[in-house]
Nucleic acid binder design. Structure first.
Lengths: 208, 208, 208, 208
DNA sequence: AATGAATGAGCGTTCATTCAT
DNA sequence: CATGAATGAACGCTCATTCAT
């Protein structure tokens, strides 16, 4: 977790991340990466020990960034009302998923022999779930929410919907307006709206 | 679609499907497949032209089966009430996703240079969405549903939640009771209940 | 031991043997071998599993041949007089060493991580030593030999001298007549004579 | 020969010598050496030009030491009787071989494209042979030796036997008493005795 | 004078595919 | 129709060496 990377290493990680998200871990060769990153093939082994280890570093690097970002964000919304907090939580996580969709794309698919790495993502998910739980409880206590759905199911709904839309562009774009190159932008808006409506419906929230 | 397979070919496809689901497309070698299927290594190229083409056939084969199965199913529920039809639709698709989760796992991730293949899955999704739309409209017309959410968002919610739960076992199992080996069974129940509640909440449905 | 090789495999082994004897195991690449043997690089792994395993096969193949040949030879001289037997034993082993000098060259040098393979050569050496012992005992019993040197020291002397001459051409050729290309032929004669004189001197043998 | 080494270079050579003796020239990487010698990996090329050249220097360094040592030794025994001189010569060379056995191990096997380096060893061998010749002639002249074997054959016998015993531990240890870790010590004694008996037998020497 | 970073070549091996029968 | 043998390309990695400082 404490590992610090040089700029060059981060550059390689960024290139690798995109390629792996697109073509999978096995489908991406170190030569692919080195060519795209304009470095020598030997550098991947030189910097990270091996392709597999690079993957670990990449993974931890990205999750770490995500968790740091979330911690900051959580601080900001600490004082708000439950309905506002919930809205911000949803907006935050949907936005993050669209921002790093390629990362989440390979995280759940490709990390086969390194199951333990998922622990980090798990940590993020549980932190997030716990935060949702707090907000629900607070809202129910204050009477603004009339139902108390399970927080893990709220997370499932938010993340599941977002990733589905990210990964099934050719389906969802049928229902999204605007030019194709704006798909992710527009899809984010649409799924965000959908998720917000859905969650607040489940919470039995009715604006005054 | 028109392609007919011999028994031997179907046998190979079945073996390949399981291996690919477990180890990914790139992670599965033709030698793996041929060894497990007790055939000669040259047979994959011989029968299907190439590994990639075999993949296409496999994909089409599975989607075709799914669509046939859905057509049958749709017929069965044709006469019911909207709330029953919606419930059955949800149960059907969630069940299918869990049944062929390994297949759906690689569909959206591993198929490269074969973008057109997604058309088949797209066909299934749109058919399904259209069916959902019919049911919503019918329910709204009869007054049993008070809201009319977008059908594509309903599908997104159902499929997204199911796939998330399938792919993030180590997160969702924290909230699922029973031994680990029953995870998929129990997770299916839990996510099914969640999805049902969510969709009917969105529909503004209230049982008498 | 029972492993049978195809002609092509034997061809590869022969090429590999010569190269390895000349440049060492690590110094000989599979591409070297494949080029010299006019085969594809992949064949070494294909036929033998790996370069290392090829080495094992090569070793066993050569030792096996040597032991078979010795068994035949031992049979032939079974009935002779001790002095004749000893002479033939020496001639036989010196001749074998010169014939397969490249093999013996790498056997004792390069087999680092496969120590157990030496067992086979050990078997040959002990068989040979035991045979020498028999002859010495018989000769001493009959009074034709007046001394009974240790058989392992006789073997050491014979094999050590031969290998030294083989491996130190640039020294020994100073004392060998004839053109350079006949070195091994002439050196064999010279070292053979030397070894015979030495051993019989040690045995205290005096021709009538 | 004229090359003078700094302390650091000598340190590297010593480390390299031991590693190469253990793992062979190709089996020893410059990283191995630099790690063991606590120097930067670039230093081998920096100091010696290349790994191969370092090898040459190492070789010359060792042979040079050996020749210097022999020159000293030769001086010491200059005045003795032939039988004593011969005995001391044998003891000296056998002892040297055991002392630097790892060095002699790779000399004849690993040095490629550097055939000229053998000249140095050749020089040592011829010097030694010439010395043996002197002693034989003197002994024959004085009547203490009744035969005059060829000096190169005497050298062959001494060096060949010693190296054989060094390189074929697993054979010779069957006939050597004491714990395995004392093998070289005990083997040296045994082969020394054998060589002495053999040479004096060939010389037709009989102690009064 | 010395070093850490970086390089290009080569390593043994495995891959999907094609060939010869 | 089917197969075992064989292929060339590509794989991840390590090598001795060179570069920039």
């Amino acid at each position: 977790m404490k590992k610090k990377f040089t700029e060059k290493q981060i550059h390689i990680l960024n290139v690798a991340e995109k390629l792996i998200a697109k073509k999978g871990f096995e489908g991406t060769s170190v030569r692919d990466i080195s060519t795209n990153a304009n470095i020598n093939v030997a550098m991947i082994s030189y910097y990270f020990g091996s392709k597999e280890k690079m993957m670990s570093y990449l993974y931890r690097y990205r999750v770490q960034k995500t968790r740091e970002s979330f911690a900051e964000f959580a601080e900001i919304i600490r004082e708000g009302k439950p309905e506002m907090q919930m809205k911000e939580l949803i907006k935050y996580v949907v936005n993050q998923l669209f921002k790093f969709n390629y990362f989440h794309g390979f995280v759940t698919q490709e990390l086969r022999h390194t199951e333990h790495l998922k622990e980090d993502l798990l940590g993020f998910y549980t932190t997030f779930t716990s935060k949702i739980d707090d907000v629900i409880k607070k809202g129910v206590a204050s009477g603004i929410f009339t139902n108390a759905p399970k927080p893990e199911d709220i997370l499932t709904l938010i993340v599941g919907s977002s990733l589905f839309v990210i990964r099934n562009k050719n389906f969802y774009e049928l229902y999204v307006s605007g030019p194709e190159e704006n798909y992710f932008e527009e899809a984010e808006k649409k799924v965000m709206a959908n998720v917000l409506v859905t969650v607040f419906s489940l919470l039995g929230y009715h604006a005054d």
